[in-house]
């Protein structure tokens, strides 16, 4: 896609430590272009960079109360470009949060933990598989 064949991922989290860790993991486990943002606003501002995947923290207004939260950010991303897959990330393992994320069009919901990165990797792989299938389907549909 852009920037050669590298997949571009947006990481959005106001927890700098988690954000950094995630960035390190992505950089080490594959050939990604990573852009990190501490707030939803920054993420939205830079949507023009055309990320392939956005990993978005559910809680973005923990410290800065004026900041928009994860769901709002998700809605806005979807409003701008509904095709960008967004994976929600949260430290809380709560079904209602997960459901609300899905309702707002998140691709998946991952709980922050030791295995979170693995899951993200799988999800990203799945996303591209899915997209490829979709593309193929579209191609065939056009042919039809």
């Amino acid at each position: 896609m852009n920037n050669g064949n590298k997949i571009k991922i947006f990481l959005v989290d106001d927890d700098a430590v988690s954000l950094k860790l995630l960035e390190i993991e992505f950089l080490q486990h594959g050939d990604f272009t990573i852009e990190t943002y501490a707030t939803g606003e920054l993420c939205l501002e830079n949507l023009s960079h055309n990320p392939d995947v956005i990993i978005l923290d559910y809680y973005l207004d923990g410290i800065n109360k004026k900041a928009i939260n994860g769901i709002e950010t998700l809605d806005k991303i979807k409003a701008i470009n509904a095709n960008i897959p967004v994976i929600m990330l949260s430290s809380q393992d709560k079904i209602d949060i997960a459901i609300s994320c899905m309702h707002h069009g998140a691709f998946d919901y991952v709980v922050k933990s030791e295995t979170a990165f693995l899951r993200l990797q799988k999800i990203i792989t799945a996303i591209f598989k899915f997209k490829k299938i979709e593309k193929q389907l579209n191609w065939y549909m056009e042919r039809m």
């Binding site: 927890d15 430590v17 988690s18 207004d61 410290i63 109360k65 430290s91 030791e114």
Partner: peptide, 15 residues
């Protein structure tokens, strides 16, 4: 705020 700050601290424990 307490809830939020504690929430922010939690992930760093395991890290």
């Amino acid at each position: 705020t307490l809830h939020a700050t504690v929430h922010k601290i939690i992930p760093s424990f395991s890290i």
